[in-house]
Design a protein around this nucleic acid. Structure first.
Lengths: 195, 195
DNA sequence: TAGTTCATGTAATGAGTTACATGATTAT
DNA sequence: ATAATCATGTAACTCATTACATGAACTA
């Protein structure tokens, strides 16, 4: 069986919280799940139209004052069932492709100093990510858990992000330290200062 | 500019440590970097032949006793330069697609109990991963840092893996706890027992 | 007036995965 | 005998990304 695309469920899930357009979906993805999932316009619009023909969503044109027309998609019963069925399935194991780690693995070719620069960069990125997550968390906490009970679930994904980035930052610190030591020992060897 | 494939560098890096065949590369990837990088035969053999025409590697047929013939690839000077150039470039930001997290985000549709099962499964997976990493670490520690100084770099990627999985396991524990609470509060509401 | 945001779409591309095919040998 | 390991390859496919195109309105 060929591996099935998961984009549809990302979109269905978003539409399920409330009817929205492709543009809205992209916006919501970027604001809420961007640290563990991504979607781009090209795919969104394509998948949306496909799901319409499959009867998972329906489309309505919404006229707006001054702004371009919107195509607002609404989930159907069939769509909700498809979403639920996926939610009950086991997630596929992740296939990471961590370019930085690959560079570290083959780092002996460029030496520790060059790696340290990369890792410092990554550390900065982690810090920013953690700040963003904190802001989102604060926002969610002010939200009265009203119409949708999605808040506690969203919160739990934020917690994952935070733990993940904190761990990565800790790794960055450790790696910088280790590679600094390594760089010094290389220098020592060159000056004939063996242990 | 279209995004460039990173597979070639994964392969070049492996061949750089010692000449080997596509089959060997797959084996080495699976044993050493599988928790943050993956390659499959289809791609390996294709990319290998492409790199040969580009002059990044050379190929030699090796006859083996009893076993099928091997095509052993060796990195060229051009290949080493390409590898080095990539190592000096900044890694592209990762694009995660964490299906489990997506399911958690939309979890309100199936409720906390169903999620807890998934997360328990994930926790088990993390535990196994940590054990595998520990074994690899022990193996590396017995290796005398001889011909290749790749050991400390490899070690550092192992440390990343361990920190990552430990963080994920901690998240699993937290999430299980939180969703258990949530499940109970839902039950309370049903039985008319409000706080 | 030039740039940004809003809004949708499609064609081309590429990269990677899967499935399939072959065939020898070795272990059970 | 038959399953597993060793070893390579390719065709089909799908998924996603990129690039490009359009166009209105708002903002500096």
């Amino acid at each position: 069986m060929p591996k099935e695309s998961k984009s549809r469920y990302a979109l269905l899930g978003m539409i399920n919280t409330m009817p929205m357009s492709g543009y809205d979906i992209k916006d919501m993805c970027d604001r809420s799940i961007s640290y563990f999932w991504h979607e781009n316009y090209g795919n969104i619009y394509t998948v949306l139209r496909k799901m319409e023909t499959e009867g998972l969503v329906t489309m309505e044109r919404h006229q707006q004052d001054g702004r371009p027309e919107k195509k607002v998609y609404t989930i159907t019963t069939a769509g909700q069932e498809a979403l639920k069925a996926w939610l009950h399935r086991s997630p596929e194991p992740r296939r990471l492709r961590e370019e930085l780690l690959l560079q570290v693995f083959h780092g002996s070719m460029i030496g520790p100093e060059a790696l340290i620069q990369k890792i410092k960069q990554q550390r900065k990125y982690c810090q920013e990510a953690i700040m963003n997550l904190s802001e989102t968390k604060e926002y969610l906490e002010t939200e009265i858990d009203g119409k949708d009970s999605l808040v506690p679930y969203w919160m739990q994904t934020l917690s994952f992000g935070k733990k993940f980035y904190k761990a990565e930052m800790a790794w960055c610190d450790e790696a910088i330290q280790e590679f600094t030591k390594l760089a010094e020992s290389v220098k020592d060897e060159k000056s004939g200062n063996h242990s």
